[in-house]
C-alpha cells in the first residue's frame, strides 16, 4: 500500500513538473517567438532539474516510461502524409531520393566529425 502511494505520488509529481514546463514553454514562445513552445519547455525542464527546482529522483521512473513509449504520439501527425498524395505522385520519387541522400550526408558528416572531435577531447 505504501509502495503504491509512493508510486502514485511520483507519477503525479512528474506530470505536474512536465506540464508546468509545457506551460512555461508556451509563455516563452508567446513573448519571444524564436523557438516553438515544446523546445522552450525542454530547455526549461532541463534547467529546473539542474537547479534542483524539481527532484530528479522522483521524476526518473515516470520519464523513462514516457521516453520508451513516446513514439506513439507521432503516429497521428505521420498519418498526415495521406493528404499529400497528389504532390507525392508528381515529385515523390525525386523528393524521396533527395531526402534520402542528403539525410545520409548529414548523418555521416555529423557522426564522423563529432566522433573525431570527441576522441581528440577525451
Amino acid at each position: 500500500m505504501i509502495a503504491f502511494k509512493k508510486k502514485t505520488f511520483k507519477v503525479l509529481y512528474s506530470i505536474f513538473a512536465l506540464f508546468s514546463c509545457v506551460a512555461l514553454g508556451k509563455l516563452c514562445s508567446y513573448f519571444v517567438p524564436v523557438l516553438p513552445s515544446s523546445l522552450y519547455g525542454l530547455i526549461i525542464f532541463t534547467l529546473t532539474l539542474h537547479f534542483r527546482l524539481f527532484n530528479a529522483d522522483h521524476i526518473k521512473s515516470t520519464v523513462v516510461w514516457c521516453l520508451k513509449h513516446m513514439g506513439v504520439c507521432f503516429v497521428p501527425a505521420g498519418v498526415g502524409i495521406i493528404n499529400h498524395f497528389e504532390l507525392i505522385k508528381q515529385f515523390g520519387l525525386t523528393i524521396i531520393a533527395i531526402t534520402f541522400a542528403t539525410t545520409f550526408i548529414l548523418l555521416t558528416i555529423v557522426g564522423l566529425h563529432y566522433q573525431r572531435y570527441a576522441v581528440d577531447e577525451e
Partner: peptide
C-alpha cells in the same frame, strides 16, 4: 484524415509533454 486526426486529439496533446520529457536525459 481530418476525422482520424480530430479523434486522436489525446495523442496530439501528449506530443508536447513528450518532447519536454527529452529534457531529462539532457539534464543527466
Amino acid at each position: 484524415f481530418e476525422n482520424y486526426f480530430s479523434n486522436s486529439w489525446l495523442l496530439n496533446a501528449l506530443l508536447e509533454p513528450a518532447v519536454v520529457a527529452l529534457g531529462f536525459p539532457l539534464y543527466q
